[in-house]
Nucleic acid binder design. Structure first.
Length: 655
DNA sequence: ATAGGCTCTGTTTTT
DNA sequence: CAGAGCCTAT
């Protein structure tokens, strides 16, 4: 162990040092953008371990798994010894970890499955059918999922939430509640939890079982929470409970960067922290190492319009640079051309593409830019909207594993059967029912039953799949998975891909990748819950590890916590950013959150910032809409920006 | 009755 | 570019 007190003083500024080496007790670290927040947490962990705290008694909650891994890796470097016992990850992960052990305490089996978005939508669809209200004038499954999740994450009763949300519609709240009840029933029946359930039951476990709570309270001497401004009421109560015994809770965050209100996050959690912990030490990290003063001036002005926030001033340390550019190209194509021209310029000046990002409010805002970049042969990577494990072919293949792993996983069973001709949702459901809501591939008579229930057209296909099923013991699945999948591809799924998709070979490659990935797990259960909880942010670091030189295209949400030398923000027009949808629900709070989102976008930039607001946009049905520039741009004094023109629109025929 | 192909429409953000 | 809705073949 090499580090000493001096070491920390050398490595950290006084603010960071105060946070990292604070004595026991609650602490709130308000870390403005670019002030070394991650560094401070890493050093705090290192400091605790150096002081002799067993890493197994530290709990570190982060927003993504990637963030947790990064921090743990850096802390390990500092300390020089393994700190692998430390519990680190997202709230969902930690809740899952506890529920795997204690699920029966909340009425579930330990081998529950985790529903991803698609799964839960189809279960909601099923609930609608079961309630006999799958009419088109009723709420769609997505809307219902939004309401259910909204209530769960705010720790509210659904009835109370929908009273507000459904006023002025013809939807009967009683029907919504009915579907919700059925949905919960179906989940329980299938032994499945959705994402929200992990949090809800995680908290339920603590509320209902004092002995279990006490065990964890004793265990965790220190609790650290990153991105505290984005915790929702369930998460903050959960944290309060788990930290209640030792009261060594360190909350780190920035209320300016609270951008998950739509998911139930409540920035008031961070605002009221000092009231809930009157003895809390409050540390402010205000020295910014990331951005030039010119960028910070713009950032400060754009957040100034928001009410109710902690007062923070950002002190720049970098030398003056150039004012951010503001550009109003005639249309989206010209905007794309402008971005490409600028990228060419940066490239010629010797900058890496890796150090350039284009940020936007919603995925579809980047469509035309993707086309233009492809035409211009500029490589780009996308933090796409669809996650690896949510792609159809990956889910298909996983459903085979799920069926074998868990005999009551009806969703996986249905998915697998639907691959066969003449089997759809309905047929799969009927068969499932007739099998008695479970399917055990190791029972000969169940297999025989299934064979007889399949429609004639499906039988020849099933005939080649069935022999693969019971080749290994259920406990050995993880070892056999590789071989099993290979056979499955060979006898069935490869042909299926060729017949149903345009790019079967790419999808085959994905599945090859999946087979390698499985090899890293010790149990099927671990593999299945990890993959359900893996976000695409977590993945990018690992699988794009080749670190190709490419520009990054990302939503502002997914850019949180990241930084680049050169940042473009596109489609800064009213209605797109701020998004009109974001404003619709609750005018004032909606606008405040959109403004924080803009603040996050601006503060991602180290040296150069390019803001773009096209003057018009063409809609899908060839109409041209005039766009006014974002209200957030109006709030920035003109002398802080450098206005540039972006050439003429591409020539176009009109008829 | 249900599967599956075909057409049309209209887009937030994600663990 | 996907998801809902409509239509026809099984």
């Amino acid at each position: 162990m090499t580090a000493t007190g001096n070491f920390f003083e050398r490595e950290l500024n006084p603010e960071q040092l105060a946070a990292a080496t604070a004595p026991d007790g609650p602490m709130l670290a308000l870390a403005a953008a670019g002030t070394g927040k991650t560094r401070t947490i890493v050093y705090r962990v290192a400091y605790l371990v150096e002081r002799g705290i067993d890493p197994g008694r530290i709990l570190l909650l982060t927003f993504t798994n990637k963030a947790a891994h990064e921090m743990l890796a850096r802390a390990t470097d500092l300390v020089g010894t393994g700190i692998g016992d430390l519990w680190g990850g997202t709230f969902h992960h930690m809740a899952n970890r506890m529920l795997r052990r204690y699920a029966p305490a909340v009425g579930y089996r330990n081998d529950y499955t985790i529903l991803d978005r698609d799964d839960s939508l189809s279960l909601i669809r099923k609930a609608l059918r079961a309630c006999g209200i799958d009419r088109r004038d009723f709420l769609k499954p997505e809307a219902l999922a939004g309401l259910f999740g909204g209530a769960a994450n705010r720790d509210m009763r659904l009835r109370d939430l929908i009273e507000d949300r459904l006023t002025g519609t013809l939807i009967d709240p009683a029907d919504v509640v009915k579907v919700h009840r059925k949905y919960k029933e179906l989940k329980l029946e299938a032994g499945a939890m959705d994402f929200d359930d992990l949090l809800v039951f995680g908290l339920e476990l603590f509320r209902q079982k004092p002995d279990i709570l006490q065990r964890y309270q004793e265990r965790f001497l220190h609790v650290l929470v990153d991105e505290y401004q984005d915790t929702n009421p369930i998460q903050s109560e959960w944290v309060d409970l788990v930290a209640a015994r030792h009261r060594n809770l360190m909350a780190v965050g920035d209320d300016f960067q609270s951008i998950y209100g739509w998911r139930g996050a409540d920035y008031r959690n961070i605002l009221t922290f000092p009231e809930r912990y009157p003895d809390a030490r409050i540390v402010k990290l205000e020295t910014n190492y990331r951005s030039t003063p010119d960028i910070l001036k713009v950032a400060n002005r754009c957040i100034a319009g928001n009410p109710r926030q902690f007062q923070k001033t950002i002190r720049p340390t970098r030398e003056p640079g150039r004012k951010p550019d503001l550009c109003r190209p005639p249309d989206g194509d010209t905007q794309a051309q402008y971005v490409i021209d600028k990228i060419d310029g940066l490239r010629r000046a010797g900058h890496c593409l890796k150090e350039i990002a284009v940020l936007y409010r919603a995925h579809y805002h980047a469509l035309e830019l993707q086309l233009a970049l492809t035409r211009a042969s500029i490589p780009f990577v996308l933090t796409s909207g669809i996650r690896f494990f949510e792609q159809a072919h990956i889910k298909d293949v996983c459903s085979l594993l799920r069926v074998l792993h868990n005999p009551i996983d009806g969703m996986a069973f249905a998915r697998l059967l639907c691959l066969l001709p003449r089997v759809g949702e309905r047929t799969a459901e009927t068969i499932w029912k007739k099998l008695g809501y479970s399917f055990d591939a190791w029972q000969a008579e169940q297999k025989e039953r299934l064979r007889s229930l399949l429609p004639a057209a499906a039988r020849p296909f099933w005939k080649v799949i069935e022999p693969l099923l019971d080749r290994c013991h259920r406990d050995q699945l993880i070892v056999a998975a590789n071989e099993l999948l290979q056979q499955f591809l060979k006898v069935f799924y490869h042909d299926y891909l060729v017949q149903n998709f345009e790019n079967p070979e790419r999808r085959m490659e994905d599945i090859e990748g999946l087979r390698e990935f499985i090899a890293r797990f010790d149990s099927m259960e671990e593999f299945l819950s990890e993959t359900a909880l893996l976000s695409n942010l977590d993945r990018t670091a690992e699988s794009d590890g080749a670190e190709q030189d490419a520009i990054r295209l990302s939503t502002v949400h997914q850019a949180k916590g990241l930084e680049w030398d050169h940042v473009f923000v596109i489609w800064l027009t009213d209605g797109m950013f701020p998004s009109s949808r974001g404003l619709s629900e609750n005018e004032e709070e909606g606008e405040a959150e959109e403004r924080r989102l803009f603040y996050v976008a601006v503060t991602r930039a180290r040296s150069r910032l390019f803001l773009c607001a096209p003057q018009c946009r063409r809609t899908a049905n060839r109409q041209t809409l005039w766009c006014t520039q974002s209200r957030f741009l109006d709030e920035i004094p003109a002398d802080l920006l450098h206005k540039v023109s972006a050439g003429r629109p591409a020539f176009r025929w009109h008829r």
